[in-house]
Amino acid sequence: MSTFVTTSHGADFFGEDRHLITSLASLADYARSCLAADERDQLVQLLTAPATAEVGTEQTIPAADAGRLATQLRRVARNRYLRSKRLAASAALLADAAARAAADGEPWHWRTEATA
């Protein structure tokens, strides 16, 4: 069974993106190392929370926070030590979705799901 997070304001036809929870946890590790200590806490918490959340758990990030998180996610995606193109692509997709939510003035939604 694969567990993933579906985010709103994504790039697919339905306006959603799906990210494996294991990928999000790996991104959190990179965020810890490439962002300053005083700015990374919310992003790291957002990326690690789905690992312990039950399937069906939803999280809503206000538009103002989504804008700030988009900037941080872009920095993680562009970090020279992030060698995995797959993780860099996930970080870039998350940053784009967060930026769209912020630009629209809408909250950014995350939902934990699983497949058989």
Rank of each mutant, 00 (worst) to 15 (best):
S23F: 10
A28G: 05
A92G: 10
R18C: 12
T48R: 06
V44S: 10
Q45Y: 02
R40A: 12
C34K: 11
A11R: 05
Q42N: 07
T60Y: 08
V44F: 06
L82C: 14
L46E: 01
A77M: 10
F14R: 14
A91M: 03
R83M: 05
D17M: 03
G10Q: 01
V44W: 05
S90Y: 09
L87C: 11
L27K: 00
S23W: 01
D17L: 07
L43H: 13
A64V: 15
E58K: 13
V76A: 11
L87T: 13
A63M: 06
T3I: 08
A99N: 04
L43T: 14
D41P: 00
R68N: 09
S26W: 02
P50V: 14
L93M: 06
D65N: 10
A91G: 02
T6H: 00
L87A: 13
K85V: 15
E58P: 01
S23D: 09
N79Q: 12
Y30R: 09
R40S: 14
A37W: 14
F14C: 14
R80G: 13
A92M: 14
A101C: 04
S26M: 09
S90R: 06
N79Y: 15
L82P: 11
Q42C: 10
R32G: 13
A51I: 09
Q72N: 09
L73E: 03
L94K: 03
A88C: 02
A91P: 01
Y30E: 12
A53H: 00
V5R: 04
A11V: 06
G67F: 08
R40G: 12
A95P: 01
A25K: 05
T48Q: 07
L35F: 08
L93G: 08
A70V: 11
A103E: 04
D29K: 12
V5E: 00
T48F: 00
Q59D: 08
A91S: 06
A92N: 08
E39Y: 03
N79F: 15
D12C: 08
Q59E: 07
T57G: 09
R86C: 06
A99C: 14
E39R: 11
E54T: 12
A103R: 05
A97R: 02
S8P: 02
L35Y: 04
R100Y: 11
D12A: 09
Q59F: 11
T7E: 01
A66E: 09
Q42V: 13
A37R: 15
Q72D: 15
Q42W: 03
E39H: 07
A103T: 13
S90E: 04
A89C: 06
R68G: 10
A95I: 02
S8Q: 05
T22C: 07
